[in-house]
């Protein structure tokens, strides 16, 4: 195993660990390029830039890059090899996403009843729905990619 202080972020499986390390490295290089570009842009007054927004953008950009690469790599569901296992996992994903939506909506509704919400109820519900949809889509795409990849590897 590679001796690195980010070991706690890496899975035990060798292939996954090395591939994720590559994604981290790619994200770091892209971030470096983004920083250099922003330094050049900030010298001229082409675009007005808010420091905090730029930092948040870079943070989310980096996380999104690694996350999307991981989902599309098809290595998340490494043991899903058969159509039966695929259907079972797909069912689990639907149950997980639906449970997440129900729990989020119930929490938001109860916060609203007790007057602890600073935004309108409908906004909270829309955000919950989008989050649940995102959870379902990312898991579903990851599952589908994993299944396609694994089908080719089965003995």
């Amino acid at each position: 195993m590679e001796k690195t202080w980010i070991s706690f972020l890496l899975p035990d499986d060798e292939y996954k660990r090395r591939t994720i390390l590559v994604y981290f490295a790619e994200a770091a290089i892209l971030q470096l390029i983004a920083v250099l570009t922003l330094i050049v842009i900030s010298r001229f007054d082409f675009i007005p830039m808010d420091g905090v927004i730029v930092l948040i953008g870079m943070l989310f950009g980096t996380i999104a890059y690694v996350w999307i690469r991981y989902i599309l790599s098809g290595m998340e569901f490494a043991e899903i090899m058969t159509a039966k296992a695929y259907r079972r996992e797909r069912k689990l994903i639907i149950i997980k996403s639906t449970s997440f939506l129900v729990i989020m909506c119930a929490s938001i509704a109860s916060f609203d009843v007790f007057g602890m919400m600073s935004v309108p109820l409908i906004e909270g519900l829309i955000v919950s729905f989008i989050a649940a949809l995102l959870l379902f889509l990312t898991n579903y795409v990851s599952l589908k990619r994993s299944y396609w990849k694994n089908r080719e590897l089965i003995d």
Binding site: D12, D13, E14, Y15, K16, M75, A78, E79, M81, S146, K149, N150, E152, L153, I154, D155
Partner: peptide, 13 residues
């Protein structure tokens, strides 16, 4: 060998 089945499949291919 404590890896996933996918890893074994990838090595074999």
């Amino acid at each position: 060998v404590r890896v996933t089945r996918q890893t074994i499949g990838l090595i074999e291919k």
